[in-house]
Write a protein that binds this DNA or RNA. Structure first.
Length: 208
DNA sequence: TCGCAGATAAGCT
DNA sequence: GCTTATCTGCGAT
């Protein structure tokens, strides 16, 4: 039982989104809609911070309808659309009023693989199933309508299944697609599980 | 199977 | 228009 510990809000209200992003590697991420459970182990994340991070949508207290939910207390889903096509899932962190978040970029599928294949339109189990932030949301059936969802609820949640990831197994590097952020784009705030085939293969053109 | 490169993608503001 | 990506095919392994 203690092997399937659901992560509670205090995990996400901690002040350092970079630490949380690293801690999430090896944790599990699930969704359940209409009784269909889908998800897997997190192998890639990125940290964003509202205060000192030009790559963040809510940099320097920018407050728009889109970024509003980032200012909520940790433990809330921030889902937004990128390139008009892909929904990306972030988990809001830190205290209310501080716009920090962690982006879930890739997972290793463990539950509901057939359903995820169906949603992705794939017949084989391959990295294209969940290796990429827009792919994870599609496989788990998450869309922008889930923006603001509480991850302590029973639709979207995280679990600690007792997987211990040694520090040496975690790779830190620059984030993807944030070249516009200048020097902040170089911050090693992207974390991934070393050697996992489920880590996204981002186009180097966007990794800077 | 994996990595690269170029082409392509569409809803929100 | 803009955008914190994905798809597809190709060649190397």
């Amino acid at each position: 039982m203690s092997l399937q510990q659901k992560l509670t809000q205090d995990f996400f209200t901690r002040p350092d989104s970079v630490t949380i992003a690293r801690d999430l590697i090896g944790k599990h991420f699930f969704s359940s809609f209409d009784g269909v459970l889908t998800g897997g182990m997190i192998v890639e994340t990125e940290a964003y911070s509202g205060l000192n991070d030009a790559a963040c949508h809510a940099h320097l207290g920018r407050r728009t309808k889109r970024t509003q939910v980032m200012y909520e207390q940790g433990g809330i889903a921030y889902v937004y659309l990128i390139y008009g096509i892909h929904a990306l899932f972030n988990i809001v962190t830190n205290a209310e009023g501080i716009a920090d978040a962690v982006l879930i970029r890739a997972i290793e599928p463990t539950e509901g693989i057939e359903e995820m294949q169906l949603r992705r339109g794939l017949t084989k189990v391959e990295p294209r199933l969940t290796a990429g932030p827009g792919l994870v949301t599609q496989a788990l059936g998450i869309s922008t309508q889930h923006n603001g969802t509480d991850v302590n609820g029973n639709e979207i949640w995280f679990e600690d299944r007792g997987v211990l990831v040694p520090e040496a197994q975690i790779v830190a590097g620059p984030r993807v697609g944030v070249a516009y952020a200048g020097a902040d784009a170089l911050l090693p705030w992207r974390f991934s599980l070393k050697g996992s085939r489920w880590v996204s293969k981002a186009n180097p053109k966007y990794t800077l």
